[in-house]
């Protein structure tokens, strides 16, 4: 475990908790894409099935359980507890356009043609695009609450730190996983436009709003 990986995980955890707290404290999920959150719940569920088959470390097991638990809690808050505040009309991204191609790709390109491995691959591919409904929603409404942008920044930072972690691991451990790396690059690229807006607007104290 190197420092980039650790801070990547912590950034990921921060993103998840920021979102949960935002919804809980404001008693509202306005501006949050429930579809993206369902996709993340699917991502964690299909990726961490190895909780049942192999033990890696206490850190690994506990982080996986926290990620899964928080993602289901978020989905519950959006679709049950604070459903009245859910902005379904603006959350109109067609997720089947993500799930179907990603599922097909996972069956075609994987490390091993076994159920667990295909589901893991599916989760890696799906994670790389799972934020799209959220970004689509922001582009539709033209704005995002500042706390939502902090969430997105932590999500993007997590993937960027993982990229540095993989460069590190390649040089010092000879480790690389092409599927994870390609998907991670795609995922990070999706955040670049947002990073730019975050730095030029949100960090200067302005609300994130897109030009009409």
């Amino acid at each position: 475990m190197n420092i980039f990986r650790l801070f990547g995980d912590l950034s990921h955890l921060a993103a998840i908790i920021i979102l949960l707290l935002k919804i809980w404290k404001s008693r509202s999920c306005a501006g949050i894409s429930g579809k993206s959150q369902i996709l993340f719940a699917i991502v964690f569920t299909t990726r961490y099935l190895d909780l049942l088959t192999s033990f890696i470390s206490l850190y690994n097991t506990s982080m996986k359980m926290i990620y899964i638990g928080c993602s289901y809690a978020t989905v519950y808050l959006i679709y049950a507890k604070f459903r009245a505040t859910y902005d379904g009309n603006h959350d109109s991204f067609r997720v089947e356009f993500l799930i179907v191609p990603v599922g097909g790709l996972a069956v075609l390109i994987n490390h091993d043609f076994s159920l667990l491995e295909i589901l893991w691959t599916f989760s890696i591919y799906l994670e790389s695009v799972a934020i799209l409904p959220q970004l689509f929603m922001i582009s539709k409404t033209g704005e995002a609450e500042t706390i939502t942008t902090h969430y997105l920044f932590c999500q993007g930072l997590y993937r960027a730190l993982y990229l540095i972690n993989w460069i590190w691991r390649f040089y010092f451990e000879g480790f690389f996983d092409m599927i994870a790396i390609v998907a991670g690059v795609v995922q990070t690229i999706l955040y670049c436009d947002f990073f730019y807006l975050y730095v030029t607007k949100v960090l200067k104290g302005k609300k994130l709003s897109l030009p009409a």
Binding site: R5, D50, L116
Partner: peptide
């Protein structure tokens, strides 16, 4: 061909 190894990353 890569063998399936435990995934230590999250």
């Amino acid at each position: 061909e890569e063998e399936a190894k435990p995934k230590d990353e999250l």
